Computed example of a mutant assay.
Amino acid sequence: MLGWAVTFLVVALIAAILGFGGVAGTAMEAAKIVFFVAIALFLISAVSGAVRGRAPRI
């Protein structure tokens, strides 16, 4: 799940660069939404990974 969150974050950042630069107003709004969703997914993944605590692989 962490991999998906990072993927969405990268896509959101690329869309934000294009949208915030004035390329398209619609892309800017979509980039904002995807960016915040990606941040939320990343935080949820980080917290759930920390809570579960995996045993080190030897």
Rank of each mutant, 00 (worst) to 15 (best):
T26I: 10
F8L: 06
S45M: 00
V11C: 03
P56K: 13
A30T: 05
F8Y: 04
T26G: 15
P56G: 08
F36P: 14
F35A: 15
G19N: 03
V34G: 09
L18R: 05
T7W: 07
V47G: 00
V23P: 11
G49Y: 10
F20W: 12
A31Q: 06
A46Q: 04
G22E: 01
R57M: 11
A50W: 10
G49T: 10
L43I: 05
F36K: 12
S45T: 00
F42C: 02
A5K: 00
L43H: 02
G49H: 08
M1E: 01
V23Y: 11
G19D: 02
W4N: 03
V6I: 06
R54P: 09
A12E: 00
F36V: 13
G53V: 07
I39S: 05
I44L: 09
W4M: 04
R57G: 05
A46C: 03
A40L: 13
G49K: 08
A46D: 02
R54Y: 08
F8D: 04
A31T: 03
F8V: 02
A12Q: 03
I33Y: 14
L9Y: 10
R57S: 10
F20M: 11
A12D: 01
S48I: 03
I33T: 09
I33R: 14
A12N: 04
M1G: 01
G25Y: 04
F8G: 02
W4V: 07
G25L: 07
A24H: 11
F42R: 03
I39T: 08
L9M: 09
A38Q: 08
A55I: 09
T26A: 14
M28D: 15
I33N: 11
E29L: 15
T7P: 01
R57Y: 07
F20S: 12
L9V: 02
V37H: 10
G3S: 06
G21R: 13
A31D: 06
G19Y: 05
V47A: 02
V11Y: 04
I17M: 12
A16T: 14
L2Y: 02
M28V: 00
I14T: 09
F35G: 15
R52G: 07
L13M: 13
L9R: 10
G21K: 11
G21P: 07
G21T: 14
I58V: 13
A50H: 07
A15P: 00
A38S: 12
G19L: 02
I17W: 12
A50I: 06
L13Y: 10
V11S: 04
F42E: 01
A30C: 05
A30Y: 05
I14N: 06
R54L: 09
T26F: 15
V51W: 00
I39M: 10
V6F: 03
G53H: 12
L2K: 01
A31M: 05
I44A: 09
I58A: 11
V47K: 00
K32F: 14
A46N: 02
T26N: 08
F8P: 01
I58Y: 08
T7I: 04
V47D: 01
V37C: 12
F35L: 15
G21C: 11
F36W: 14
